[in-house]
Computed example of a mutant assay.
Amino acid sequence: MTIRLCKIALVAAVALFLFIVVLNNAFFDYASNYGFVEHVLAMDSLFSGESQVWRALRDPTPGDGSWWFYHAFYVTIILWEAVSCALCTYGAFQLFQQRRAPVVAFRAAKKFAVLGLTLSMLQWFVAFITVGGEWFLMWQSSTWNGQDAAFRMFACIGIVLLFLAAADGENESDA
């Protein structure tokens, strides 16, 4: 039972983290986080100069800060985080309901938590490390570089996913 409760607590902790991320990104700090996305997509702080900026998505009307694509990209990130949060929250709830169930039932209850954790890991790896970091060369910016944070979140959530996916014990009394 202890291992199961630890798994539930960690999935719930990821759900709480994602909930706070969504609140910050969507409501409390939209402008600064939007600015981060805008600068990464514009590739306006690279040390390699102009050789790779053909990849950049730059506002055709500089200065107004209202290019729709930046907002659409940012809203997609927020929605991705919100779906991951909802799946982890529901997953933790399902696991909690099955905490005393036989091993097979508890294992089956992992489905939504696994989906939520995986979706979140995909976001950190695909959207931030791959697209932001490599395609838009975010790693070259001393100001707008979120790769360390993205890797940290990818690793933390990955550890939770590995722990959740691991066997719960040899028999029900061990779980």
Rank of each mutant, 00 (worst) to 15 (best):
D29Y: 13
A15H: 04
Q147W: 13
A175C: 14
L164V: 08
V40A: 03
Q52C: 13
N171K: 14
L79A: 14
A166R: 09
V40K: 01
F73I: 09
I78E: 09
L117V: 02
K111Y: 06
G35T: 06
F47C: 07
A42M: 07
Q52Y: 15
T61M: 06
A92D: 04
E172W: 02
R4V: 02
A166M: 14
F47W: 14
T118F: 11
G63P: 12
D44K: 05
D59A: 14
V75H: 07
F136G: 02
V14L: 13
K7N: 01
A101E: 09
L119T: 01
E38Y: 15
N145Q: 04
Q98E: 03
A26G: 04
F106K: 05
G158T: 02
C6Q: 00
F47H: 12
L115A: 11
I8P: 01
A167T: 15
S120C: 14
E81H: 13
I3Y: 14
D59K: 11
V53R: 15
Q140Y: 05
C88Q: 10
K110C: 02
F128W: 03
S45Y: 05
F17K: 09
Y90W: 08
A155V: 14
A175V: 06
I159F: 15
S51Y: 09
L46I: 08
A56L: 06
C6G: 00
T89D: 03
F96S: 00
Y30T: 13
G158Q: 10
Q98I: 02
V75P: 01
A167S: 15
I3F: 05
G49E: 05
Y30G: 08
D174K: 11
N25L: 10
W54R: 05
D44G: 10
A82H: 06
F28C: 08
M138P: 05
S142C: 11
L161Q: 11
L16G: 13
A92N: 08
Y74I: 07
F154E: 09
G133Y: 07
F47P: 03
L119Q: 05
Q97V: 06
T130H: 11
F17Q: 10
A13L: 15
A72W: 12
Q123W: 08
A101D: 12
N145P: 10
P102H: 02
Q147Y: 10
A149P: 00
F154W: 08
A42C: 10
L137M: 09
G169R: 06
N24H: 01
T61A: 12
